[in-house]
Write a protein that binds this DNA or RNA. Sequence first.
DNA 1: CACAGGGGAGAACGATCGTTCTCCTCTCGT
DNA 2: ACGAGAGGAGAACGATCGTTCTCCCCTGTG
Lengths: 204, 204
Amino acid sequence: MDLDEARTRILDAAEKLFYDRGIQSVGMDELRTTAGVSLKRLYQCFPAKHDLVEAYLRRRDTRWRAALAEYVAERADGPETRPLAVFDWLHTWFSEPDFRGCAFINSFGELGATSDGVGRVAREHKRALLSYLTGLVRAVPIAEPGELAVQLALLIDGAISSAAISGDPAAARHARTAAERLMAAARAGTEPGTEPGTAGASRK
Amino acid sequence: MDLDEARTRILDAAEKLFYDRGIQSVGMDELRTTAGVSLKRLYQCFPAKHDLVEAYLRRRDTRWRAALAEYVAERADGPETRPLAVFDWLHTWFSEPDFRGCAFINSFGELGATSDGVGRVAREHKRALLSYLTGLVRAVPIAEPGELAVQLALLIDGAISSAAISGDPAAARHARTAAERLMAAARAGTEPGTEPGTAGASRK
DNA sequence: CACAGGGGAGAACGATCGTTCTCCTCTCGT
DNA sequence: ACGAGAGGAGAACGATCGTTCTCCCCTGTG
């Protein structure tokens, strides 16, 4: 077996088990069994459990954000609907049978006080999501794009937590309508006639 | 030492240790030491660890919601500002040095898949919070109070998670301004002249 | 064919977990 | 004064954890 294939099989097993049942609830032996590799291989790829935990979180971060960005890019039919498509993607995610909330919030709650690596990865994940949202919002003429992006991030985190605990994917729909109203409110803050593109002062 | 005093000392220790470091990271022996009771007493009050975990969560639920309701009742100067006072209370909570997010989201992420008692308490906590918010919102003339209450709940959960991971209490302020705009949007949905209290149809 | 070496399976190790048991002390009713 | 029972301190137990070690086979090269 290749060393890279062993790595991906271990990471696949880690993602399934860690996300489903929490990190401290799954031992290295079960991980080894699920991945189908030997213990020697496991410790050859990841010298300690916290290395595997961090690698699991980092890979999940990049994949999660890539899946979201891909969905938004191909589903939204314009810059105005892109921020709302985020919540449609959330709804499909919440509807998956093994959905169990945000892996980073869960890991942070479990190990954030103990392992600073987990806290760091969780912080980076939320910061990267916020910068992605900021990019989406900037493509729409809006009074304060940073503020709206932060508000959307709050709605996203809230919807994830609510859907995880209640088990009801409808949290994504409620968050979506809230996002619509926040976008409309932020749009109302822009004075008409001052959008970039129409040169000159048309009012004053 | 009284039996009731032992119970509260154990619950005090459990709340501090479980909330600070997670549940699985603190053992019964450290709990016993912090509470200052004997192991026999500990197991006399709580026959197993999961009993203590559930009691800890239930007591925290009632205390947390009571503290919130008390703050809102004495700080808000009218029905219109009560929902916003919730976010002011969040800001003071986030600013406490040992703030580490929502105990129920954290516990659910750590043990929700394993222990169904934890999942049940977390669900009840969120449901009770939502019904409290619904009560606050119903005192304001608003088109769909249930919808607005759900949206506020999403903002609250999102602010808690965001503040926990980023460490920045400003999440409460952002959530507050979002709540203001959502309330204004929901208020705009009510037709003027149809509030209860002004008898008769003043428009039609 | 001989043999060196890497990988697989799993036993083994020390630590720690939740829980129980032992031993000793103290108190209280008669 | 004295026996009985309750409570405290902590040893002890079985299980499980993360990690390492042992043994054996398999393959490739002279």
